[in-house]
Amino acid sequence: MTATVHVPGGSMPAAPVEPRKRRASKVPYLLLLPGVAWLLVFFVAPMIFLASQSLQTGSIEQGYALTWHIGTYGDALSAFHSQLFRSFGYAATATVLGLLVGYPLAYTIAFKAGRWKNVLLVLVIAPFFTSFLIRTLAWQTILSSDGPVVGFFRATHLMDLLRSLHLVAGNDLLSTPFAVVMGLTYNFLPFMVLPLYASLERIDIRLLEAGGDLYARPFTAFRKVTWPLSLPGVVAGTLLTFIPAAGDYINSKLLGNTSTTMIGQVIDGQFLRVLDYPTAAALSFTLMLAILVIVAVYVRRAGTEELV
């Protein structure tokens, strides 16, 4: 299990070394073949189909024809831009919350857990043993208006705080933006914790001891040593949380209301119920491009400015 956990931070940096050893061997290419074939069949081909679909016009009765109707993108964006921005807002919030919850957890498991390390790691992954849908449905019960969580929020005036932040509307937690963001945070937490753990766990404890010897206080040692060294994990964890969260539609469907609609739900509705395949395809494509741009900007910033 540790081997797989190491992947995000570990194997990627090895790539730049490769081109220098110029060997005529074909073996690496053969080894690449399954991966490339997989990518072509399950990523490139559907992508081309999607792009094509987004430029077609027609109906299910008449059939669709490629007319290069680029206007679909404009129409789709003007109709659904608020859902798109909302998705990114929710996903970003869930990512930040995930980091706030996940970092101390990963830190504890990596440095303080001792022999409980493996047990704790299993507990982090344990929710994956049941289906995503069931876990989200469970949140309906947890947040339901006669449940203890709502009672606690009401008694401690946390409810008033949330209401002043417009995260809940009435006196309930279910069917609010708050519930959706909580659901997203919860569901994607393991994706945050595991890469964080992987990069924290590899930190040489002697570096921290050296920092202490040089009169760094624990906080300074954390800021100067632990945090920078864990940044690959932070980048990987935030990406693995943000990307699926932005496209998610189960949480907003089950835990939200009519004003928490995320872009995934819109695509689902356009594809399944309206049968407007071009709009659904155009929205999917836009979502993908937007995520690509956000990720590229993020990775570049995190990679060149803060880390050097």
Binding site: P13, R202, V235, A236, G303, T304, V308
Partner: peptide, 17 residues
Amino acid sequence: MTEPVGGFSPALMRGLL
């Protein structure tokens, strides 16, 4: 710990490129 700390990200960018 031989690779640069930011190794992850440039590699990813190269991958994209």
